[in-house]
Write a protein that binds this DNA or RNA. Structure first.
Length: 158
DNA sequence: CGAATTTGACCTGCGC
DNA sequence: GCGCAGGTCAAATTCG
């Protein structure tokens, strides 16, 4: 891969710098992070992982100047899965999706995956390992589906 | 008309 | 005990 696979990727997941707040989450057993490679022109925080997510919040953290988006499973209200999507501070072309919990249902797309992202995902990363591991770059091709996406990508700002 | 997304405000937890 | 940051909820707005 390119350089993002190592240096960039590492910096993306763990900022072992001056930040001493909650920059390092313990990551529960059900939590895992996924790096999604997107297009630089794609400014949306939508990660197509085969599931349907509903955005319920967005916040800007000190770690990353980019806003972090919070998603919940929109398919089942009983699904305890939560997803946090944040753009990489080093490489704005990559999105770091943090999944917490596992789905109580199968992906609507028909995929067979139960926890890791489906829809032709290349790989996942960091299940419960130290942040020193090199994450895998997932090459998810974002298919413009959300209404906001069109807006964000660069259509008519209404 | 219904569903989804966006933005702001509020609440909780942790660190100093 | 106070302050800061992160996370969540609710109301409003817009698009299909």
């Amino acid at each position: 891969m390119e350089r993002e696979s190592e240096g960039g990727g590492e910096s993306c997941v763990s900022h072992g710098s001056s930040v001493k707040r909650r920059e390092m989450e313990p990551l529960r057993s059900n939590s895992y992070r996924v790096l999604v490679r997107t297009d630089p022109s794609d400014s949306s925080l939508i990660v197509k992982d085969g599931y349907q997510w509903r955005k319920y919040g967005q916040k800007v953290t000190k770690d990353n100047p980019s806003p972090r988006a919070y998603f919940r499973c929109a398919r089942s209200p009983d699904c305890p899965v939560k997803k946090k999507v944040q753009r990489c501070a080093e490489d704005k072309t990559m999105l770091v999706a943090t999944y917490e919990g596992e789905h109580n249902h199968k992906p609507p797309g028909g995929a067979d995956r139960t926890s890791p992202p489906a829809s032709g995902c290349a790989a996942i990363s960091l299940a419960d390992e130290p942040a020193t591991s090199v994450p895998v770059n997932v090459d998810l091709t974002l298919s413009g589906t959300s209404r906001r996406e069109r807006d964000l990508i660069g259509a008519s700002p209404r």
